[in-house]
Nucleic acid binder design. Structure first.
Lengths: 150, 150
DNA sequence: ATGTTGAGTTCCGTTAAGGAACCCCGATTG
DNA sequence: CAATCGGGGTTCCTTAACGGAACTCAACAT
């Protein structure tokens, strides 16, 4: 398919897509997040081709999102989130929130999130890191940053 | 490539991926967000194949994320975000935030976000919609919801 | 009448996804 | 010590999606 790779673009969205934008990658990440850490567990859960799963896991490890570590003296490995990967889970939570709101339909959301701090079933909300007020699509101006294209 | 479609999964992440998970779709959405509303503008900005751009735009319109409206008596059309699409931009902002933090390197972020409410250059932060405290990967328990698989 | 412009289609060669079968290696079993 | 098992991948083949360039079409403009 000769997919274009986006890393040449001066765009953090494009760059992020080069890390987790390939098909299945976010779902692989989700599985690792919820505790499916082994190849066969993930393969069985997703029904993904073993070939593609191998490629995705390798890529995520190469990108520093997952860590591959042996758990036996036999050649057995587990995948775990790195710090970089853990922070990517924010993205998954926002995705899940949007899907819950717009795609869940009558049945309601398939998964609920209970927040440790307050004990309530809740969801994520985007706030300004500076002032704490809501921060959504219409609430920002975009300005060229130091890493902008020349 | 016969890409698997994820809509059968009882998972809001998978369902969201069916809407914007295809290659280029998030970048198309970003372009519309920043004011590139016409076919040729988006095509030139991204360097995407016209064929693929047509497919992506149609899909995003079908999914109710974009709205296609004529702007001339000639057959000319503009794409705009719907409410559903505007809320998807949250996802883009989180993506951009992660990319800024982990992939921007020495050069720094290519784009800065100025928050209208406080006027400061800032970024998004995930908070619990219920209590307002930070809400990240490790701060939640996952429970089966009403729409969980049988 | 001819040219231009925006918005797509069409066509073709390449490459990645899907799927099933196969392989490797260290343990365990008989 | 041969046979089996099970996790974690490879190999190979088919099919569909991408990339790119050329082509179409319907209003205008000159």
């Amino acid at each position: 398919m000769q997919r274009t790779n986006f890393s040449g673009m001066a765009c953090s969205i494009a760059r992020t897509l080069d890390v987790i934008g390939e098909p299945w990658s976010p779902l692989v990440l989700r599985d690792v997040w919820v505790g499916l850490n082994r190849f066969d567990q993930i393969q069985a859960d997703l029904g993904i081709s073993r070939k593609v799963l191998t490629e995705r896991l390798n890529h995520l490890v190469d990108q520093g999102v997952l860590d591959r570590q042996p758990y036996d003296r036999r050649p057995r490995y587990e995948y775990h989130l790195t710090q970089k990967g853990t922070e990517l889970v924010d993205l998954l939570m926002v995705m899940a929130g949007w899907g819950d709101r717009w795609l869940a339909g009558e049945a309601g959301p398939p998964v609920l999130y209970r927040h440790h701090a307050c004990g309530e079933i809740s969801g994520v909300d985007l706030r300004c890191a500076h002032c704490g007020e809501p921060m959504h699509a219409g609430d920002v101006d975009l300005l060229p940053g130091p890493g902008a294209a020349a």
